[in-house]
Amino acid sequence: MKLTINGEDHQTDISVLSDLLVSLDYEGDWLATAVNGELVHREERPGFTLSDRDRIEILSPMQGG
């Protein structure tokens, strides 16, 4: 299926959000995820099934004013 991850197109067979993060080498307790404009909590990722054309945002801390 086709996913948009942080604005870039990806083709993948992985359908669970937590598995997708591992496959893309995202790790750490400082990440936040949203799918189609809705927050997906850390503990919800292993049970969150992705669908074709989902838009995924993966954010982490950075400097801010």
């Binding site: 604005g7 893309l24 995202y26 750490g28 400082w30 954010l59 801390p61 950075m62 801010g64 004013g65």
Partner: peptide, 22 residues
């Protein structure tokens, strides 16, 4: 201190390093 959130690149650890500093 104020902080922010931005897109993390795949395999990126910049957010983690900053968070550890704070």
């Amino acid at each position: 201190v104020t902080v922010s959130l931005r897109r993390e690149t795949a395999g990126g650890k910049t957010g983690g390093a900053f968070f550890e500093l704070i």
